[in-house]
Design a protein around this nucleic acid. Structure first.
Lengths: 163, 163
DNA sequence: TATTGTTATACTCTATAACTATA
DNA sequence: TATAGTTATAGAGTATAACAATA
């Protein structure tokens, strides 16, 4: 905090809300890529807005979930699981460690590696986040209805198919 | 360009590729929000990778498409159409104007407003981008197959439903 | 007073390259 | 030489607040 803060009361960017209309978007509207972007954006904003947790955005949440499900995972493996460079993971994990949510232990078999684990308070926090995510998901479920499994399958096939 | 460039040969961030696996992602995998993020990310990277156009990312492309479809649109209206703050649109449009792709004309009826239009070369560029987007979309179409209309509908309902 | 667009400011996310320490 | 993680650096994207011009 080298400089005085002048800006908003809130660190989480992106209020704005969803796109307006009456404006013609042309072919954009029929493009999967564009609609993907709009939906992702809306979901992201809604998650941030609805969640009471004021500083663990979806990225941290995803990392914590992966660590929870793969105790002892290394940073490089984690980086592949969330499709980010390892240099992106370093500060992310440092942040989680600073908050006492993640513990880092040097591996004794390969001293280059660091094994990641959630701390007890990390597990607690994950439960809280899970609850929020679940309620956010219920909202999404209500919107997509019975098409949910199909939607998930389609999204996965896009992710895999474009790799 | 006030400073020397040290980094890569390419301004477009985000190589990396898609997520790896063998790693358990737990409930994340069944979450619409998460899968939306992964698919959007993959689509974004693929678009950037496949497109020959080396410096007009999806955001610019979307803005240009909206301007093309709504000649004379104002910046504020555009900002609503693409769900971004007007202060975000200012530098975006300045960039497009600098490249000679967009023309800005002060409205004579309301001198606060600026009417946006694509220049001739902006229209040309849009055609090139359209071609790339179309080929990217064909790839997506091949992946999602006949489910495309349903997918588009679902994504739109998510965007609208979360507003 | 309200709105359009601009500016000043700043923060998040992400990457590349080079580096250290291991292996 | 190759890999794990860190650091230095940088840029894209986006936002809030305040402001000037205009309505």
């Amino acid at each position: 905090m080298s400089q005085s803060r002048r800006a908003g009361r809130d660190l989480r960017r992106r209020p704005v809300a969803a796109a307006s209309d009456a404006t013609r978007r042309g072919r954009l509207d029929g493009r999967i890529g564009f609609q993907l972007r709009m939906a992702q954006d809306a979901s992201f904003r809604a998650f941030a807005r609805d969640t009471g947790v004021r500083d663990l955005r979806p990225g941290r949440f995803a990392a914590m979930t992966v660590i929870h499900n793969n105790p002892g995972i290394t940073q490089t493996t984690l980086s592949r699981a969330i499709a980010r460079d390892k240099s992106t993971v370093t500060p992310l994990i440092q942040d989680l460690e600073r908050r006492g949510l993640v513990a880092r232990v040097r591996s004794r078999t390969d001293r280059r590696c660091i094994a990641l684990r959630l701390t007890a308070s990390g597990e607690d926090m994950l439960l809280v986040l899970e609850a929020h995510a679940a309620s956010h998901d219920r909202r999404l479920d209500r919107i997509v209805g019975p098409a949910k499994p199909a939607l998930i399958r389609l999204l996965k096939s896009i992710t895999d198919g474009l790799a």
